[in-house]
Design a protein around this nucleic acid. Structure first.
Length: 887
RNA sequence: GGGUUGGUGGUCUAGUCUGGUUAUGACACCUCCUUGACAUGGAGGAGGCCGGCAGUUCAAAUCUGCCCCAACCCA
């Protein structure tokens, strides 16, 4: 058995052999969870500024993990891991959203049951059982992403504690006067038979017909016989309550004040002027039905029109529809059109495609129904919510405009009651006599009015002793919008008679991550709720991630069949490589998933692994710091300081792509390609040994947020002390800080140029890179780096020249500094350019000026570029700041 | 239809807010090279005039206007 296999057998981190991500990654994932490396030790006394808390929107457990989850959570994890190292204490919780229609349907399907057959609590119990299995699977997958979630801090949106918080939230907003129950037109889904909110609607293109229907003008001596109305919904004419004409519509002005007779049904309705009529559409005359669309509702309210309900809660025609009673709206539409045609009222009919508003869950087109519903008042606080949004830092900033536009476009208060069985019940009863609202006692929550008794024996309003329970449940968003309060342990303190949090140090949360598609409802609703409860904006910052598209930049969708499953990706590539890819896009940008991008990550892991092996072979693990570092080593550490500083700034600003690229370039090009090659020639040098190890440790720490597995493996193999993992893990170390190394960066840069020039020389002359060079002279600032150049390029004799070598020069070009020249000479710049181009200029070295186009240019605006010709022995190589002579 | 965001070599992308003239890097491509870790490596090379048009300016990928295309949000 090889040492390699032995090591793996013992489950110990080891640098033997090649990197084996498959074995290493799952091993660390398990250990991190077992050792609770990412556990948050809650301490209410802690200074909130030293805790970094994340509030993440819980995913629906019944859905499977998709690339969006993978991407979103990976970004959150970059922030969490960086902050954990940088600031110390991090809360990265996790929630399972199992409250809602999705998990209800899942349970029905899984157990082959109908929720109607069960009492609500019973059904919810079944839901929780079914969801538990899915949650376990989801947990596994999440842990497979290497996210540093605190698995001790999880919640489910249907669990009793969350139900209690939801109901407390309802009571609190009720007491604050932010909620009301009102009989009013509401958006209604006839398939789900529930009211829904504005956010649950979406538009869908549907085929339909426009019907031109003739209405007679009633009364004696009317202005004209009839007029025509175009409608896509003839089944609504029994619900017609008025006809509208625009006040500026000269052609139809004669109708205003008249009475129209509705065809077939024969009832008469007034014709009214209103500027909400769209004159461009159809004949300019429109009917108002209760209710066809939102305009109808406005008219109904503005003109105090009667209510005619022709369609019931299941989209079936009512008795108002006469002969059509009992038909579905679809059937009624066809039947009515046919009868209109028979009776000569149908003047035209043609096919169209138009957008209809549908319920996003079931794609059923919505109706508007008058019903008694609970609302959260939001329209009167639009300004405040806008300000709350402004107070947050948005990453990227541009996403704020989506939030702003959403709020500006709000037209409805938030409808929070749903006529569903499963969900969190309203803790309310009503007096059967006076309809007085009886709220549950806070201590009793969570309650279910369907099975629990109200807290009073008789109505405090009228003394009646019979009550009716509220059957409705909360909109799931009413609960999902409480996640910051759930995470902070918000509850009613009965002794103090006020709301309090178990962990107030977490609130407001430092970061709220989410996709750009849910800004308008999830983020918005969360701000509404938390702001109303606490008076504070719940988040300091929000990070909006883009969407993962397919390789052709198209949105992934099941119908297109272009969905890439995370499982498929993770079975092929290391998680660390996938994370490296996830860091490649600017936060907020959509970006394509391209398999080839993952190989870049794989290559980096291999490079990091191999470089670590080399470092390990070149220097003892923990060398002492020499009194004085040599120039080349000090140079590396000074460059490292710069990198650390920039990287920290990038990560602080959620600029993961910039951090990733900066670190990769520095690690690969500067450290591996330049410094390691030099270090190979300086093996026993204590200065180099110290720099090597210092840089290597720092690199592992800097890479750790991006590549948690490979860095942990190398760290544990080389540097970890004995002890428990939650203390020795690289992920709980302090983030590197610049050490203040000072070096001659110019000399270092010049030395690298010289090395590069010599490499190019060998390459062009088809020499191996380790071929000996007899003698090399350098003219340029490379002080302190002579040995480095000499050793790494195998130069037998290196000479640093005090004076320029024997070269003759002639002017090759004149470089102008336009940023200085432009403002100074303005429109003369064109002439100056032309003069230089044509060679009509004179350089006066003594005066230090360039005479061209009648101007004397000062020496700060131009630079003479010389063509050098070497007239001595050997060959000359030029770099930006040095001249190299090879003999 | 309205709004938002974006359109940079074959692909992905930096730079655009704070205009300055040789536009960043990676992948792919071509040539060469076994440097004591990595050939899944290294050294080089070719390849774009920055969606289109017009304008502002001495100067525009960068500012303004219009147009085209794409995605998203809202109708």
């Amino acid at each position: 058995m090889s040492t390699d296999a032995n090591a793996r057998e013992r489950d110990e981190a080891s640098l033997e052999g090649g990197y084996d991500p498959e074995a290493v990654e799952s091993r660390w994932q398990d250990r991190w969870v077992d050792a609770e490396v990412y556990a948050y030790d809650g301490d209410p006394q802690r200074d909130p500024n030293t805790v970094y808390s994340i509030d993440t929107p819980p995913p629906t457990v019944s859905g499977s993990l998709h690339m969006g989850h993978l991407y979103g959570h990976t970004l959150q994890d970059f922030a969490a891991r960086f902050q954990r190292m940088h600031d110390g204490e991090v809360l990265f919780p996790f929630g399972y959203d199992d409250n809602g229609i999705a998990s209800e349907r899942l349970t029905e399907k899984e157990l082959d049951i109908r929720h109607q057959d069960y009492e609500r609590r019973e059904f919810q119990k079944l839901c929780r059982e079914v969801c538990t299995e899915y949650e376990a699977e989801f947990t596994d997958k999440m842990q497979g992403l290497g996210c540093s979630i605190d698995w001790n801090n999880t919640y489910k949106t249907i669990e009793p504690r969350v139900q209690r918080i939801s109901q407390l939230s309802f009571l609190d907003l009720y007491e604050k006067g932010r909620e009301y129950r009102k009989k009013a037109p509401a958006i209604w889904c006839p398939d789900c038979e529930t009211a829904i909110s504005q956010v649950e609607m979406e538009d869908d293109e549907r085929h339909s017909h426009f019907n031109d229907i003739a209405f007679e003008v009633a009364g004696e001596d009317p202005a004209r016989e009839e007029f025509v109305i175009s409608t896509t919904r003839p089944e609504l004419i029994p619900a017609c309550v008025s006809v509208f004409v625009h006040p500026d519509d000269d052609e139809n002005q004669d109708l205003v004040g008249e009475t129209a007779r509705v065809p077939i049904f024969g009832h008469e309705v007034p014709i009214i002027a209103d500027d909400r009529v769209d004159m461009e559409k159809g004949s300019g005359v429109v009917m108002c039905c209760t209710f066809g669309d939102q305009n109808d509702i406005e008219w109904y309210q503005a003109h105090d029109l009667p209510l005619r309900v022709a369609i019931d809660e299941s989209a079936t025609m009512t008795d108002l529809a006469g002969d059509y009673e009992g038909l579905s709206t679809e059937e009624a539409r066809e039947a009515i059109v046919e009868d209109l045609d028979d009776e000569g009222y149908l003047r035209d009919r043609w096919e169209i495609t138009h957008a209809v508003q549908v319920h996003e869950r079931c794609d059923t087109s919505v109706e508007f129904r008058v019903s008694k519903q609970w609302y959260v008042e939001i329209l009167d606080h639009k300004e405040e919510y806008l300000e709350a949004g402004q107070e947050m830092d948005w990453y990227p900033e541009k996403m704020f405009s989506r939030y702003r536009h959403w709020i500006e476009g709000l037209e409805w208060d938030w409808l929070i009651s749903r006529q569903r069985d499963s969900g969190i019940p309203f803790p309310v009863w009503y007096c059967t006599d006076c309809d007085h609202e009886i709220m549950a006692e806070r201590e009793e929550l969570p309650v279910d009015p369907l099975s629990d008794e109200p807290p009073v024996d008789s109505c405090p309003e009228c003394g009646n002793d019979a009550f009716e329970p509220e059957e409705d449940v909360f909109d799931t968003w009413a609960t999902s919008s409480l996640t910051p309060l759930i995470n902070a342990g918000w509850d009613w303190d009965a002794d103090e008679e006020e709301f309090a949090m178990d962990n107030p140090e977490l609130y407001p949360f430092d970061l709220r991550p989410q996709g750009h598609d849910i800004i308008s409802f999830w983020l918005f609703h969360t701000i509404v709720k938390c702001y109303e409860h606490t008076g504070e904006v719940p988040f300091d910052a929000t990070m909006i991630n883009g969407h993962v598209l397919d390789e052709n930049r198209e949105k992934m969708s099941k119908s297109k069949g272009n969905v890439v499953a995370p499982e498929a990706v993770l079975s092929e590539y290391p998680v660390d490589a996938v994370r490296f890819w996830a860091a490649s896009a600017a936060v907020g940008d959509d970006f394509p998933y391209q398999e080839k991008d993952l190989t870049a990550g794989e290559k980096l892991l291999r490079k990091l692994w191999n470089a670590s092996k080399l470092v390990d072979s070149l220097a003892p693990a923990d060398p002492d710091e020499p009194a004085e570092l040599e120039a080349i080593d000090r140079w590396l550490l000074a460059e490292l300081d710069d990198a650390v500083e920039e990287l920290t700034a990038h990560l602080d600003a959620y600029e993961f792509a910039k951090a990733r690229d900066r670190l990769r370039t520095f690690f690969w090009n500067t450290f591996c390609d330049d410094y390691l090659e030099i270090a190979k020639e300086r093996e026993d040098n204590p200065s180099t040994q110290y720099a090597l190890r210092t840089a290597h440790r720092t690199f592992l720490e800097l890479w750790a947020p991006f590549l948690p597995h490979v860095t942990e493996e190398i760290w544990q193999a080389l540097y970890a002390e004995d002890g428990k993992l939650d203390e020795t893990s690289i992920h709980v170390r302090d983030w590197p800080a610049p050490q203040g190394y000072e070096a001659d960066l110019e000399a270092g840069e010049t030395a690298m140029e010289v090395i590069s020039a010599l490499r190019r020389y060998k390459s062009e002359n088809q020499l191996p890179l380790n071929a000996d060079l007899e003698a090399v002279s350098v003219y340029g600032p490379v002080e302190g780096f002579e040995d480095a150049i000499q050793n790494v390029m195998h130069v037998r004799e290196l000479d640093v020249l005090e004076e320029p070598p024997e070269i003759t020069t002639e002017v090759a070009a004149i470089d102008l500094d336009y940023s200085t020249l432009g403002p100074r000479y303005g429109s003369k710049v064109g002439d100056i350019d032309a003069g230089i181009e044509s060679g009509e200029y004179e350089i006066d070295d003594d005066a230090g000026v360039l005479r061209v186009a009648g101007e004397d240019l000062e020496d700060d605006v131009f630079e003479v570029e010389l063509e050098r010709t070497y007239s001595g022995e050997g060959e000359m190589l030029e770099t930006d700041s040095a001249i190299v002579i090879l003999e």
